[in-house]
């Protein structure tokens, strides 16, 4: 399963993007059932790019909800173009996903 899901819908010159990422976004303040703190594990950056140019960058801390969601919009893309998203978390894990703009 890809970790990034995107819905990118173009209307006129504007493309509205919604993304849902599967990630625990552990804050570092929550204990597991045995009472041990679950170490912080969260996405730090999520970069969306169109034609290899970043169009929107999210910097996230541990206060972003589990399975994080973000919505934004940008101009200059056309239906059928590819939108790319890449996240990197505080443990150095990373994933990239793409979506066709509808």
């Amino acid at each position: 399963m890809p970790s990034i899901r995107m819905k990118a819908i173009s209307s006129g010159d504007t493309t509205e993007v919604q993304a849902l990422v599967q990630h625990p976004m552990d804050s570092g303040f929550v204990k597991d059932p045995s009472g041990a703190l679950i170490p912080p594990h969260h996405i730090e950056t999520l970069v969306f790019s169109h034609n290899d140019k970043p169009v929107f960058t999210a910097y996230w801390g541990p206060a972003v909800s589990k399975d994080p969601y973000v919505k934004f919009a940008f101009k200059g893309a056309a239906k059928g173009d590819t939108l790319q998203a890449t996240w990197i978390d505080n443990m150095g894990k990373t994933d990239t996903g793409t979506a066709k703009i509808a």
């Binding site: 399963m1 899901r5 819905k7 919604q18 993304a19 849902l20 599967q22 399975d67 969601y69 919505k71």
Partner: peptide, 12 residues
């Protein structure tokens, strides 16, 4: 519901 968190489960 703009992007429901159950969508990954639907695919699975």
């Amino acid at each position: 519901m703009q992007f429901p968190p159950y969508e990954p489960a639907l695919d699975e």
